[in-house]
Design a protein around this nucleic acid. Structure first.
Length: 433
DNA sequence: TCTGGGGTCCTAGGACCC
DNA sequence: TCTGGGGTCCTAGGACCC
């Protein structure tokens, strides 16, 4: 029949409910489900606070939805705990959770997907932990809760895509925080979805283009001629069609190769910048930060890209939101050439616009050769902690090196010091701060 | 949504090569 | 040199994810 040739297995997509907020609760001896708490990043350029996470009770009691992201939207209430982020702690907890997951499936079939999500291929092992996949999922939930005090949400599917859709669309609305999707239940559970942007891989722009084709539900998507989708969306159209039928042929043990790895840093400036000299200072700082991270990872960059975002006013005046240009450079991890390349691009393409955003990204990365070895980096330590390193590498591969990097201490000068301890743009919660 | 930050992937069009 | 064809590589821009 229709799905006869599709691979079928038992996959879990596990995410941590209100991850950052829950960790902040547990470290305070509070129950994550019974505490109203938000994690708020308050750096100089967040204009008075960016909400990173909200506990379930805080959402419920104060009507805070996912789109509440600013401090100014928060109610003034002493019962609402507002705490700064500790990114380093969250990364440690992520590693601990994945260590638990490895008791339930083999390392090769565990794929850390983000700071708070992992995919497990449970096909070969679920029977060891319950009479049904759902019972096995509950076993994992209990283990994580007993050992770390955290609540997990689990999507179950016959392939990774179904597990992800089950998590996002179903699990979060069930009492036991488990949702499942199978080929059989696609019509009932998936095709009835009409809020397209709820679906993984469909955001505002894609939903709008689908609407133009009069596609306003997953049912309609599944019953559109794939050739039409192909013409409209290219490869993405084919993927959308497969998604609507719950089809995903990927295998966790066959890791996708990252085609073009990149490493970079960006920042929204705390205010508009109009003067070349001031902009140059920040460009230099960011380029040096990127260089430091390249060295930390023993990588050299063969391309440097500079992106400049204009202020809103300048965007309106010029009709452009900014620009982005790249140049090839001899592979390097040194401050000097990277700063020089960034400044060259800036002077070539900047014509006096007032700006608000700067990004420097390096690509065409290659392994730095032997003489670049940093004496202060314990290479052997990583080799010996293979299990930990494995997960670490996976997260880096998937999300970028930065998720597990603390770019502290070595950076020079000015405002860079303020940002040096940030992890993923937010407070790392490390001792030096 | 008047600006968080770090990533990956896709595509059209141009440069260049044989 | 008034217009070959096929291929690769690169870039800028767009879109999405967490």
């Amino acid at each position: 029949m229709l799905y006869d040739n599709e691979p079928r297995g038992v996959y879990f997509l596990i995410d941590n409910k209100s991850f950052y907020a829950s960790i902040e609760c547990t470290t305070r001896g509070l129950n994550p489900l019974k505490t109203a708490l938000v994690v708020m990043s308050d750096q100089a350029n967040t204009n008075g606070g960016l909400i990173l996470a909200t506990s379930p009770l805080a959402k419920q009691r104060y009507g805070l939805q996912a789109n509440v992201s600013r401090q100014r939207d928060l109610p003034q209430d002493d019962r609402l705990l507002v705490v700064p982020p500790r990114m380093t702690l969250y990364i440690q907890r992520n590693l601990a959770i994945n260590a638990i997951f490895r008791r339930f499936t083999a390392p090769a079939t565990l794929w850390p997907y983000s700071i708070d999500e992992s995919i497990l291929d449970m096909t070969a092992t679920w029977r060891l932990f319950g009479t049904t996949p759902r019972a096995a999922a509950q076993c994992i939930q209990r283990t994580v809760q007993d050992e770390l005090g955290l609540y997990t949400t689990i999507g179950i599917g016959e392939n990774p895509l179904q597990a992800k859709l089950a998590l996002d669309l179903l699990a979060k609305h069930t009492p036991d925080l488990i949702g499942s999707l199978s080929f059989d239940s696609i019509p009932e559970k998936l095709w009835t979805i009409t809020t397209l942007t709820d679906v993984w891989s469909i955001a505002h722009r894609t939903a709008k283009r689908l609407r133009r084709l009069h596609i306003t539900s997953l049912y309609a998507l599944a019953h559109t001629d794939p050739a039409v989708l192909k013409v409209e969306f290219g490869l993405i159209g084919t993927q959308l069609f497969a998604l609507s039928w719950g089809i995903d042929r990927s295998q966790l043990a066959v890791r996708p190769v990252t085609r073009a790895p990149s490493l970079g840093n960006s920042q929204v400036l705390p205010r508009d910048y109009a003067e070349a000299a001031q902009i140059e200072v920040v460009i230099k700082e960011i380029a040096e930060q990127v260089a430091a991270r390249l060295r930390h990872h023993r990588q050299q960059a063969g391309t440097l890209s500079l992106s400049i975002g204009f202020s809103y006013a300048a965007s309106e005046t010029t009709g452009r939101t900014g620009f982005s240009h790249a140049m090839r450079i001899p592979p390097t991890d040194q401050n000097g050439p990277l700063v020089a390349a960034a400044l060259t691009l800036f002077h070539t393409h900047w014509h006096g616009e007032v700006i608000r955003n700067i990004a420097i990204t390096t690509s065409h990365l290659s392994a730095a050769t032997g003489e670049q070895l940093n004496l202060f980096e314990p290479v052997r330590t990583q080799l010996h902690r293979t299990d930990l390193a494995r997960v670490t590498d996976e997260i880096r591969t998937r999300f970028g090196f930065t998720k597990l990097v603390y770019a502290k201490s070595k950076l020079l000068g000015g405002t860079a010091i303020n940002r040096a301890s940030l992890v993923g743009g937010h407070n790392g919660g490390n001792a030096y701060e």
